[in-house]
Simulated scan of single mutants.
Amino acid sequence: MNFTSEVIVATYNKPEYLRLCLKSIAEQSLRPTSICLADDGSDARIEPVIEAFRATYPDLPLRRSWHEDRGFRKSVALNRAIAGSECDYLVFLDDDVILHPKALRRHFSCAMRGRYLTGSLIRLDAELTQRLLQAQSYDWSEGHLAGWTPKGRSQWLKSMPFPPAVMALLDRLSPVSPNFQGACASVWREDVLRVNGFEGNMSYGGLDKEIGVRLRNAGIRGRHVRYTAPAYHLDHGRSYADQQVKQANRDYILTLRKSGETQARNGIAQLAEI
């Protein structure tokens, strides 16, 4: 791998989730150069997680990009992390994700100029999530997360049940549009800067799809790693979700597709004004 890479983990006050997420990054068959926490205002509960990780994995740099808690500002937190990164290639995760040990290797091996990569999530139910959080550990069994039972063919295929060449073929044949999946996507940092990062004016609901549209408007196309970079999503509530906001975001994204606009109106370039 002839480029530097950073995994940017969006996080907010979920220490038990974050601990498992960071563990899965550290246990990758091909590690990133560094990790950054894009922290949307977490309190002191996160600090022991960071200290423990640094003590356990001193050879994997972990930095924290934090701002004051003023409500849901995930896009701004991500932009701060991007602005502060010194790496060539960025992988975006959420703190509620456990990565398959070969997931980052797939992202890095498929990295190509003018492309972003997007995965998909295997959503875990509440019961298994609670078992994993209580144990603060996980195991792999026959290639997938131990204790997990797929719910339908789609979930089963996302767990990489066939040899890599077969799964890579499924990536290419997938009829699903490669929308930017913020919980497990990757892109060159220069391309993110080219579109001015995430849209800081957006609250929860589609902020990842929005940057994907602007990337495509700028000529940066998506490619699937839907079946070759498994990411398991731990269950949790979303008290911050607002249906009216989500609908407004959907309407804005539709307008964006038609307009061809590429620049975030409140993005990385505007950070100094916040």
Rank of each mutant, 00 (worst) to 15 (best):
R216F: 00
D125A: 10
S239A: 15
R54F: 10
A269F: 04
F198N: 01
L234R: 02
L117D: 09
P163I: 09
E127F: 12
I211Y: 02
E86G: 08
Q130A: 09
I220W: 07
S174N: 07
L128I: 11
A10S: 14
Q136N: 15
S29K: 14
D139K: 13
R113G: 09
V7C: 10
S42P: 11
P164R: 13
Y116Q: 09
G147Q: 14
A218N: 08
A126P: 00
I50K: 05
S174V: 10
P32F: 10
D139F: 03
S259L: 11
V245P: 00
H144Q: 15
I35N: 11
S177W: 04
A183K: 04
L37E: 03
K258R: 15
R54Y: 07
E261P: 00
R45K: 10
V245H: 00
L99A: 12
Q155W: 01
M167W: 09
A146C: 08
I35G: 03
W66H: 15
T56M: 03
D43C: 10
S159E: 11
S34M: 04
L78P: 02
N79H: 03
E142I: 08
V166Y: 06
T129S: 15
Q136R: 11
V213A: 12
L170F: 14
K74R: 12
S65D: 05
L93F: 07
I8K: 00
A135I: 03
Y89M: 15
T149Q: 14
G219V: 02
S120V: 02
I46P: 00
P150E: 03
E261W: 05
D39I: 12
R238Y: 07
G41I: 06
R31Q: 15
M112D: 06
L128S: 10
R214F: 06
L18K: 02
R31H: 12
Y240T: 08
E210T: 02
A26Y: 14
W188D: 04
F72I: 10
A269V: 04
R226G: 01
E68K: 09
